[in-house]
Design a protein around this nucleic acid. Structure first.
Length: 573
RNA sequence: GCGCCUGUAGCUCAGCUGGAUAGAGCACUAGACUUCGAAUCUAGGGGCCAGGGGUUCGAAUCCUCUCGGGCGCGCCA
């Protein structure tokens, strides 16, 4: 129970009482009535919009309604005064001692402070990264990886039973390309001179390792195999080596997946045909000719009869093909099967974290999941915007075709995993993000990671300085505006977590921590201008102790937030 | 051409699922270190929230149109 829930419940009680007196309907939806911190401090401690929300359904003038509610709320012990403002806001002023009590709540709940029960008893599957196993992770992959991981942390913090999942696209033509490219490197290792990598193959140096492994395992025996046989032998080995490099990079970022799913396995086990069969039974599949895509030349378009899924019935723009001309499944078909598999395993909601370049894929996939689950919001897709890598403001050249690209591993070497994790959340997920790895290692206000960690280290430092004995704490001595600001920010933590979970927006945690650090630094420096605000007051044990608890609570919440981001809360720096 | 995202201070971005006079950082100006950590803080200027119309007690937020950016668009994954 935090102060906002507490007053919301008080509000519900007030409404129940008023509904009897004035014959208001007792089952009215009060969920839009909220208790919040007013934006302007001069408006009081808490603000309530209930009168504005309820005026219309009750057909009652908002200000009069506000008066009725305010009069009841005023009877509460912790309420000092109420006032009606603007069109009908109810502003509450609390007794000065009320905010201090929040510290006790925070310290008692400790690590559990901020948790909620939104997901209790529910399962959720979060799929992220799922980079093709044809090369190492590059810097831009970090964003989806971190978004997915922190989202998973958030969900778990809210009670969900979370599965972190990675989908390995180890089927289809790219694996053929991969093994051909690896074979070329293998030949190179065995002494065949390669001038340049033919176009269409992967040119990256990382395949030299694979070539070496193949050479040491097979000697020169691979030459005797047919091309198809080579793919069969090399493909799985190359994929495994790529995946182990990917897993290593993820683990450097602090990310551990619960499940790795293989597309190849899915196809081999017949999951695709069984998923298609299910859709067929539901009458959602037919043979037909797909519409020509708009904006392309008609003469390029050769209409062909193929198996189509009625995604249009579920909000997609056109029906989508499931089979290629050689009768093998399209990527979409195996993805349908994969999501069907996930639905069955999860028995709960699915989340896909995708890159911005997959935006054309959202509608058809949500359509498919809706068709299979019968529920509209079973699949939620979070997309992340592009990442532009900069070095002192200059773009870092990345060219996958030339094989010169900045790997995730390089960037972690340069800035560290903590910085990487925090910076990737300093922008809303669907917006493009610039990542300047010269700048993010600065130790200044410019660098939010250090700013937040510095606040934590400072807090821990002053706690170490304190020599006062622990005793009964009287929180009502905390009355300065700077202290109250910090307490208010701390109290908002559970509310913030709820909003972040509800919107699936981990960046809110990062922004919250920056604000909390700012009000805490503000409080600290207030003690420089006004010596009475220094935390440790030699002649006043009571005040000192209360302040120590405030600092303790601050450190606790910062640590809790950083934990959600999987970032260390350092005690000294 | 169609779909999705997007336009907020000079710059980089928030804006709590519709709330009060739209916020923060950077940059700029002026200040605060014999002091619990100055890796910090305080104060100031700076805005038709791209533009028009609509919905209502109330719009940066929802709807619609216009203009300007990004991404995607049959058998690649």
């Amino acid at each position: 129970m935090n102060i906002f829930n507490e007053f919301e419940e008080k509000l519900y009680a007030v409404y129940a009482k008023l509904s009897k007196q004035h014959d208001f309907p007792s089952n009215l939806d009060l969920s839009k009535c909220v208790i919040e911190l007013p934006r302007d401090e001069t408006h009081g401690d808490l603000a309530c919009n209930a009168a504005l929300v309820l005026a219309k359904p009750l057909n009652y003038p908002p200000r009069k309604l506000a008066e009725l509610i305010a009069k009841e709320l005023e009877k509460d012990d912790s309420v000092l005064a109420t006032e009606i403002a603007g069109p009908g806001f109810i502003n509450l002023r609390l007794h000065q001692s009320r905010w201090g009590q929040e510290i006790l709540t925070i310290l008692e709940q400790a690590d559990a402070f901020g948790k909620n029960t939104i997901g209790t008893g529910k399962n959720i599957n979060i799929e992220f990264v799922s980079a093709n196993p044809t090369g190492p992770l590059h810097a831009a992959h970090a964003r989806g990886a971190i978004l997915g991981d922190v989202l998973s942390n958030l969900m778990a913090f809210s009670g969900y039973n979370v599965t972190r999942e990675y989908y390995i696209n180890d089927a289809g033509s790219q694996i053929i390309t991969l093994s051909k490219s690896a074979y070329l490197r293998y030949c190179e290792v065995l002494g065949v001179k390669i001038d340049s990598i033919p176009s269409g193959l992967y040119p990256g140096d990382y395949l030299i390792d694979v070539g070496e492994k193949l050479a040491s395992k097979f000697g020169d025996s691979l030459h005797q195999l047919s091309e198809a046989e080579q793919v069969e032998v090399i493909g799985p080995i190359a994929v495994e080596l790529m995946m182990s490099s990917i897993k290593k990079d993820l683990s450097r970022l602090g990310i551990t997946m619960d499940v790795y799913s293989s597309e190849n396995t899915l196809v081999k086990n017949g999951n695709v045909s069984s998923a298609i069969q299910k859709l067929q039974q539901d009458g959602l599949i037919y043979k037909g000719k797909p519409e020509a895509p708009k904006g392309q030349r008609d003469d390029q378009w050769a209409p062909r009869e193929q198996l189509l899924f009625k995604s249009k019935e579920f909000g997609d723009d056109v029906d989508r093909p499931l089979q290629k001309s050689d009768d093998s499944w399209t990527y979409f078909a195996s993805d349908v099967a994969y999501h069907f598999d996930k639905l069955e395993r999860t028995n709960g909601r699915l989340v896909d974290v995708l890159g911005a370049d997959h935006s054309g894929y959202v509608k058809r996939m949500t359509a498919a999941v809706q068709a299979m689950s019968g529920e509209k919001d079973m699949l939620q897709i979070k997309q992340c915007g592009l990442v532009t890598l900069l070095d002192k403001g200059q773009p870092v050249k990345m060219s996958k075709r030339a094989g010169t690209f900045v790997t995730l591993s390089d960037v972690i070497d340069a800035v560290g995993a903590d910085v990487m994790r925090f910076m990737m959340l300093t922008r809303r997920n669907d917006q493009p993000l610039e990542f300047d790895y010269a700048k993010v290692t600065e130790k200044s206000r410019d660098n939010p990671v250090f700013y937040v960690q510095y606040a934590h280290a400072r807090a821990k430092s002053v706690l170490r300085q304190n020599k006062k004995p622990i005793a009964e704490v009287n929180y009502s001595v905390l009355t300065d505006i700077h202290e109250i600001r910090v307490i208010k920010q701390l109290s908002s933590w559970p509310k913030l977590v709820e909003a972040a979970v509800h919107q699936c927006e981990p960046h809110r945690i990062a922004f919250y921590l920056m604000e909390l650090a700012a009000v805490f630094h503000g409080l600290w420096n207030a003690g420089r201008d006004n010596l009475e605000l220094k935390f440790i007051q030699e002649s006043d044990d009571e005040l000192t102790l209360a302040r120590m608890q405030l600092i303790d609570a601050t450190a606790l919440v910062i640590k809790s937030g950083l934990n959600l981001l999987s970032i260390d809360a350092v005690e000294e720096m």
